[in-house]
Design a protein around this nucleic acid. Sequence first.
DNA 1: ATTCTTGCAAAGCCTTTGCAACTGC
DNA 2: GCAGTTGCAAAGGCTTTGCAAGAAT
Lengths: 162, 162
Amino acid sequence: MNLPAVAVSQSPEEKFREFLATRPKSQRFTGQQRDMVRFIFIQHDHFDADHLLGEMKKSGLTVSRATAYRTLTKLVEAGLLRRLELGQRTFYEHDYGYPQHDHLLCGRCGKMIEFQDPALEEIIRQTALQMGFQVAGHSFVIKGTCVDCNRARMPKRKLDMI
Amino acid sequence: MNLPAVAVSQSPEEKFREFLATRPKSQRFTGQQRDMVRFIFIQHDHFDADHLLGEMKKSGLTVSRATAYRTLTKLVEAGLLRRLELGQRTFYEHDYGYPQHDHLLCGRCGKMIEFQDPALEEIIRQTALQMGFQVAGHSFVIKGTCVDCNRARMPKRKLDMI
DNA sequence: ATTCTTGCAAAGCCTTTGCAACTGC
DNA sequence: GCAGTTGCAAAGGCTTTGCAAGAAT
């Protein structure tokens, strides 16, 4: 958890119930969905479907792969999760109760580091204006090597010399 | 072709030959590879493997799917092509002889619009500095609806009113 | 001649889907 | 009880790979 949370009045579970109830054709809130929402919002991780299934199973919760994918899609539609497309894999992270941000991705350890920069919004706004483009969203990932992996790779002296 | 090309002294084909010859274990330049390099650099498109195979076949050039993928990988390693990961698909575009830039992606027609903004470099530099992150590259895509698709969807009057 | 490349088909990965059984509402 | 959800297994879409035949140096 890198960035300060955003104040929200409803629990993720409540918000999801509400979302389901107010859909064009009302949808149901099931036990598996409840387990998933709770499990996902206990911790603040970036995760993919496979990772989630593994962790839930470890905790004694059972959800089928198909249901996991189907529910993740709904959670995104509900505004609870944000989808991150990295390479060929899809990752998810909290959207509800968490500020908009972007990521640095370490190619060595796979760690994702969050950051915010208001200047980015401005670039997007300006570019869109100039191009007559109507923005729906964006994806921005800086790739490289994180501090820890850098330190591990490079002798201390060399770092001092820089 | 949106942005002005960058002056280069070698043809893409020459550059690729040189790349192959100077690899740790020297690699060969084959007929299929030559066909691909030439074909790719005749036009300035964003394309994926499937699209490339289709267009080449139309032009009477034959390359197997496996070879296409293998050669595209080498062209990226050689610095001739840049890889763009969009959703689950991988796209390619010219890197050699073409300036660094980012993209707007229209969700309706799939068009990719290129743009440059020096402020982005600065954001990357600053963020990396602050996080002790060593940058290797980045991917930045603004998603939404392009001018043409906007016009097509919206009655003219409404546009005038804005 | 040697060693790398090609093409085919098979396999890999992640994700989606058809369908019968099941379960919220 | 009706309509939406689950789980299974099968299928999908894109990419990679093992291997024998072919080509570049």
